[in-house]
């Protein structure tokens, strides 16, 4: 389940589980382009880790820790927007 995170000045980011961290500069150009996988119903959701805020705490959420439960995952354009 989501674990509590220490609060620091860095902006933590998550990412897809198993995907190599992005390298910067010249190295990045040399990296082979991964074939883009399409999302498909009936197929596994890509696992990911993401920092989160929940009831006064900063946490870290891993999708695969929710196996055994139904999950609704919602994306939206931005905080403080209108719709």
């Amino acid at each position: 389940m989501p674990e509590k995170q220490k609060v620091g000045c860095a902006r933590p980011t998550g990412g897809v589980v198993g995907q190599a961290k992005e390298r910067s500069g010249v190295d990045a150009a040399e990296q082979p382009k991964e074939g883009k996988k399409m999302i498909q119903v009936g197929k596994p959701a890509p696992d990911f880790v993401a920092p989160a805020y929940h009831k006064g705490e900063f946490t870290s959420v891993k999708l695969s820790e929710y196996l055994g439960k139904w999950v609704v995952l919602c994306f939206y354009p931005g905080d403080f927007t209108f719709v």
């Binding site: 197929k43 596994p44 696992d47 609704v72």
Partner: peptide, 21 residues
Amino acid sequence: DAGVENRGRFLIDPDGIIQGF
């Protein structure tokens, strides 16, 4: 291009399978 996420909504079942979006 916009640097934001569209309004995506995914239903994921207890086995981690996407049932709908």
